[in-house]
Write a protein that binds this DNA or RNA. Structure first.
Lengths: 335, 335
DNA sequence: TGCCATCGTCGATGCGCTTCGACTGACGTT
DNA sequence: AACGTCAGTCGAAGCGCATCGACGATGGCA
């Protein structure tokens, strides 16, 4: 193993000088800097992460807690993770992956064994049991999602309330008078996952303010569930002309089932989906969507984390405005 | 921060004794053990990861290199990651996430800065440029996928050759005489991703040995691409009755398009998909599949890694046998 | 009774790094 | 000419832990 001493010897300087060259915390003459940098390159030196962590109390590692359920929204989680790890690397940090399943104890462990410098936590529930402990942790913490009482924690998320409203507004503007929301699976609501209820609130509020009829139903992602869900919605209101789908897994089955029933999209029924943009074009009818900006959220989460690590201690809550992209799945209802 | 000294003081023993209680590397009297364990619990002590790494040259961290392209198979990657992190935790290790995009330099960095004890690498290409460097690395390395020349590296993967054959055999056994493979996007072949070519080989071999007609086409995952692909295949052979789909992203569009053409599944055309089992039931017709056992592969990869860390130095190549589950999308062709 | 082996415990050392105080010249100031 | 200043460098200390050799106590055996 190549150590800082080897580099120092090769460059003819003291180890501390090498350290200062690397960290830039003291001024170094150009000549010495060149000498040291060359030795580093020549020897292929990389500081020992453990030693560095021990001496400086910094690990350059960010921990990310992800949910591993498959009933959830895999594409979004993956996209988020991808973006987070990329952003972290851009700040010279690595990403450690933890699972929600391990519970609060894992967070304690990570914090008190100094494995990571900060924590990012996904899939936050309205009254998330982890929140109180996270507050007590005295590590920088950034939540992806917004609990009822963030109390000093930073949060970032899509503004799902606004997203729900945007979907309804779009349909209302096209002239629709009766719309329905097909939501995430019942389990998601049961857990009190915050984005589901926030979206629903936006949906309902907008329906009220636009004075149009609105119903909603959670929906599991098997084909049977989708079919049953449509049965219910159409039975409850045969004049239904607009569908808001906040459940990506359901889209293939849903579109297929609609056609099966002889309902054409968008001629007979309009569909707005909430999903990553990348999914919009995979379907026979390119979908009008409100994008889930997983990539943007991931980047922001990392950026907020870095700010806290840099000493910015004031917590912030960032809600990203929804972006609706009109494609081929929405149109004015037929008179 | 609680240190080993605090625990030692609280328990009235020497720090080294505490260390031995934790590691179990020397015998400890029951009385002392109880005393120490209580102090640990009471103080909420967790060893400092950096200090431990420095003193013992072990980090208890596994690094996992994943591809972050979205043209690839997100669900499979996610499922694999999930399983790997769970398995790693079961062995008291954490998981560090790296991206393929960072290239070989990142692997060097991880190895020589002692961030992780071992490396697991996904998305291996036939002539993967990372392989030679991984061999030189003198860290335990496990590949998920099989390059042309593993040369001393351990590998684990689904036996895609056998999987390709199994799909054809199933269709041939049902009486099909002409089948086609819809493969991953052209980019995947261009990269020489090993599973794609291995699957194709199995597909072709089985077609030959069963003496049935077989063609194949890569396919991007937009709806247009799917549609064009079907045009081609049906034009080339109007008697086509069997489809093998080695490209999950394409399934929704494909099934939809088939129905659009008036081709019923499985009455007019049979479909075998290669995908995670969890996707089989999401479609209007439950799909006959050869499962991609991402979870199993993840667990095996971790297990192989732990074996190497335990001193087992002989490399192994584990190819998991394919499992075909018959559902509703395959049937005998109509006379 | 005396000796040796074994068990359980302790103290000291060092892992590779960061950081702090101190030191050395060179330079400008009065 | 004497002094303060500051950039640039060094040496030493210590971060928290694992590990090794040493040591006392205990018990078995002759």
């Amino acid at each position: 193993m190549v150590t800082i001493n080897d580099v120092a010897t090769a460059a003819g300087v003291a180890p501390s000088t090498v350290s200062y060259v690397i960290s830039g915390k003291r001024s170094i003459s150009p000549k010495t800097r060149r000498l040291v940098e060359e030795s580093i390159r020549k020897l292929g030196y990389h500081p020992h992460a453990g030693a560095r962590a021990l001496a400086s109390s910094k690990t350059n590692v960010l921990a990310l807690v992800v949910p591993l359920r498959t009933d959830l929204n895999v594409a979004v989680v993956m996209e988020f993770v991808a973006s987070a790890v990329t952003a972290a690397r851009a700040h010279d940090h690595d990403l450690l992956l933890l699972t929600k399943d391990e519970g609060p104890a894992a967070l304690q462990r990570v914090a008190s064994s100094a494995i990571a410098d900060a924590l990012m936590v996904m899939d936050i529930e309205a009254a998330d049991p982890r929140v109180p402990m996270l507050i007590a942790l005295d590590l920088p913490v950034v939540l992806i999602g917004v609990p009822d009482h963030p109390a000093g924690l930073s949060c970032v998320d899509l503004d799902f309330t606004a997203a729900g409203s945007a979907c309804v507004a779009h349909l209302a503007d096209l002239g629709h008078r009766s719309v329905a929301l097909i939501g995430p699976s019942p389990a998601v609501y049961r857990r009190g996952t915050s984005y589901a209820t926030r979206f629903l609130r936006g949906f309902d509020d907008a329906a009220k303010s636009h004075d149009i009829r609105a119903t909603n139903r959670p929906c599991a992602h098997s084909y049977e569930a989708v079919s049953a869900c449509l049965d219910d919605l159409l039975a409850a209101d045969p004049d239904l002309t607009g569908l808001v789908v906040h459940n990506e897994a359901v889209l293939p089955g849903l579109l297929s089932d609609l056609r099966h029933r002889g309902l054409r999209v968008p001629e007979d029924i309009s569909v707005v989906a909430v999903c990553p943009d990348s999914m919009a074009e995979q379907h026979p009818v390119a979908l009008t969507t409100v994008a889930i900006p997983a990539e943007e959220v991931g980047a922001q989460a990392v950026e907020m984390t870095m700010r806290r690590l840099a000493g910015h201690t004031t917590p912030e809550v960032r809600l990203l405005g929804p972006r609706l992209t009109r494609r081929d799945s929405t149109a004015a209802p037929r008179a």
